[in-house]
Computed example of a mutant assay.
Amino acid sequence: MVEASSAPHIHDASTYDDLVDWGMQPDSVEGQSKSTGRLVHKGPNNQPESGIWVCTPGRWRLSIPRDEFCHFVAGKAVYRSDAGEEIAVEAGTVVMFPGGWSGECHVIETMRNIYMLV
């Protein structure tokens, strides 16, 4: 549960399981990735937004609208930009995707990402 305080938080975010069904991942290229998650905080005009995102295996197109900081705490995935850059992620990986980054995400093992979209 997101604790009500001046600093919203979730204990044990890497194993927290009270997640909400966010549906199928849009723009699928291969497989049927399903997303679940929990919003921790959303500020004025939806900025910043932070939370937990869990996604099952599959591959899809994506375009990141604003800078997004991601701390992957479980699973494996490969992000490939339209420019050919490849970023392999697994538990312990931290990535700062700049706004406008676009390409594909291929989730190999169900991943869990603690994120902040600014």
Rank of each mutant, 00 (worst) to 15 (best):
D67S: 09
I108A: 03
V107L: 08
A13Y: 13
S33K: 01
V20E: 15
E90A: 10
A13M: 13
E68A: 12
W60Q: 02
T110S: 13
G103S: 01
P48W: 14
E30T: 06
D12P: 00
L19N: 07
H71T: 07
A83I: 03
Y79H: 07
Q25W: 14
I108L: 13
V94L: 11
E49C: 07
L117A: 14
F72I: 12
F97P: 00
E109D: 15
V107A: 09
F69A: 11
G92P: 00
V89N: 05
Q47E: 13
M111G: 03
S102P: 00
S14A: 12
N46H: 14
Q47A: 11
G99Y: 10
I108Q: 06
T36I: 08
I64R: 01
G99A: 03
P48D: 09
G51K: 02
W22L: 12
D21L: 08
E104W: 07
S5E: 00
Q25C: 11
G100R: 06
N113G: 02
P44Y: 14
Y79R: 01
V95Y: 12
V2A: 03
G84M: 09
A13R: 03
E3R: 08
V40F: 09
A83K: 15
L19M: 08
G75V: 09
C55I: 14
H106V: 00
H9P: 00
T15G: 09
L117V: 13
G100Y: 11
E30L: 13
E109Q: 08
I52C: 05
G37N: 04
G100D: 04
N113F: 02
L19S: 04
V118T: 15
N45S: 12
E86N: 01
G31S: 05
V78C: 12
P26L: 14
Q25L: 14
L39R: 01
W53V: 05
R61H: 12
S14F: 10
D21K: 01
E68L: 08
P48K: 01
R80N: 04
R112F: 08
S81C: 06
R112H: 06
V73H: 07
